[in-house]
Amino acid sequence: MSRHGELGLSDDDVRSMYRYMLMARALDERLWLLNRAGKIPFVVSCKGQEGAQVGAAFALKAGRDYVLPYYRDLGVALVFGQTATDVMLSGFAKWEDPNSGGRQMPGHFGSRKHRIVTGSSPVSTQIPHAVGVALAARLRGERLVAYTSFGEGSSNQGDFHEACNFAGVHRLPVVFFCENNGYAISVPVKKQLGCERVADRAAGYGFPGVTVDGNDVLVVYAAMKEAVERALRGEGPTLVEALTYRLNPHSSDDDDRVYRTREEVEEAKSRDAIIAFGQYLQTQGLLSEEAVDDLRKEIAQLVDAATAYAEKASYAPPEEALKYVYAE
């Protein structure tokens, strides 16, 4: 049996996962291009982390679970229902942007209908929110998982620790997903963590922590699946740490040349999950080279159309800025 088959994933599932990864990558690359062309003032990147994100999101269930993603988690937002057009509307800060109506920077996901809880820029604040969602669902008798993601740097914030402890004490159905990409802007892991792994921290809160290769989509999926099942069985939270790499600078305003070598980045590119997963699908006979080309073309067309739509879409009238401070 295939690796994905053993995990309960169908051939269509893995093809779909690959498609989401390519979509996230294509959107990310387009956003950067638009930034460099002066059309979008600021973007953050998921590039290099799509495999971890899609692997994680596939272990969850859209419509049942809540996700509280951090700003790089484009792959998760897509799996949970956001479209290329949604992403581009957000990039161009247009009125129709479902995340915020053009109020927030790109990467600040949120849509109630998809159970993506609105996020902010201060890091880690979403982590206790996930615990609150899990607690509330338990009070209501709703069986679900609250997923929240963050970087390894953010695992130093008090909110991470306070939230993990709270979830541990009350054995809440939360999955804490750390996308450890090696850098908090410029500061490397060895200057961020007093322990070796973010996952080591879970022991302090009385629940399991596992570290997996974030470039191996199926390994991420397997760890997340176990965490989700554990949560649904009422056995409490899990911390899953996926080791990834951020191929782009932190944001469109960052220059990563001062804190890491080009050799290091090139080496990381060779371990890109998109390459590895594409090869896996081809080896399994699930996707021919020709089919991959077609898929890329199809996605490029979708991104083109989304870009064109979003660029033409209206801005909110300026006075909209006064709305929704309170209920109206």
């Binding site: 509280l68 609105t118 206790p128 615990v131 609150g132 939230a163 402890n165």
Partner: peptide, 14 residues
Amino acid sequence: SAIAGVAIGAAAYG
């Protein structure tokens, strides 16, 4: 911060 943050998550949930 957890008291406030957890309450915010629960409030967002409904």
